[in-house]
Write a protein that binds this DNA or RNA. Structure first.
Lengths: 135, 135
DNA sequence: ACTTGACCTAGAGTTAACTAGAGGGCTTAT
DNA sequence: ATAAGCCCTCTAGTTAACTCTAGGTCAAGT
């Protein structure tokens, strides 16, 4: 079976070996096996699991909660409902984040055009004065 | 002129008075005036500025950088280009975040349907076994 | 006059998620 | 057999962004 070293995995997933070892210490990777001398050997399936972990992290889920999910995974079918509910909740969280980020984007775009206009005019006054001064 | 107390502003913007004072200490609110005895008096325009600050924060911009922007604002038209460029950069950052969040959403949705199927079947094996076992 | 409640500053404490350094062990090429 | 390069653990340090506490001021109501 093909395996990967910690630094290969780090490179592949774009994170540091420190971070990977930290995740392991926090209980996010109980499935990763070791050589007799203690070196971690990552399987393809471990890398897939780490991608799920990265996904959950990017929804804003704290590592402790991700650990809980990993534990559910190793408890088998008895925890299917919890895991399903967790993903539904994550989905709602991401939807909310997307909404907020879109609102943010609107404001940013508005500011871009605000400053474009001001820059073309050479002064910000164009925005302040006109309302009163145009009459 | 209508003014607001720090706790009114905190409630309005959905943050704590601690956070507001922290922002002030970090130089994000040099424009907020005080009574002779030192109490902050927030104007309507201050609240608008705080909304921009919140917007920048939600793009992932650190407070130190936001402070830099606030300083540019008080330096007048000489910094128009910097401010414009900053918003363009923020726009790119948010676009990248939206892209990642959408990728995340895809995976989450996939997991939702994965667990829905498993839950209906009563076991996760439905996903593992079928590929080999269905023949 | 005095109590209440909101305000203030300074500074210490908290939390999450790393990040780094010390000290040490395999494995491989010279 | 020894040096290089990667691996390990343990523990301490870092950073951002708050969060809280202590000790004090001030204005309004009773």
């Amino acid at each position: 079976m093909v395996t990967y070293s910690i630094s290969e995995v780090a490179k592949e997933l774009n994170l540091t070996v420190y971070a990977l070892r930290y995740y392991d210490k926090e209980g996010l990777m109980p499935f990763v096996e070791r050589t007799p001398s203690g070196t971690r050997l990552f399987k393809e399936s471990d890398i897939e699991a780490l991608k799920i972990i990265q996904c959950l992290k990017s929804t804003g889920m704290p590592i402790k909660d991700i650990k809980g999910f990993i534990e559910w995974c190793s408890e088998g079918d008895a925890t299917l409902k919890q895991r399903y509910d967790m993903f539904l909740e994550r989905k709602a969280a991401v939807e909310a984040q997307l909404e907020e980020l879109n609102r943010t984007m609107d404001l940013i775009r508005h500011k871009c055009s605000y400053y474009k206009t001001a820059l073309d005019a050479g002064t910000e006054d164009i925005h302040k004065v006109n309302k009163i001064g145009s009459f």
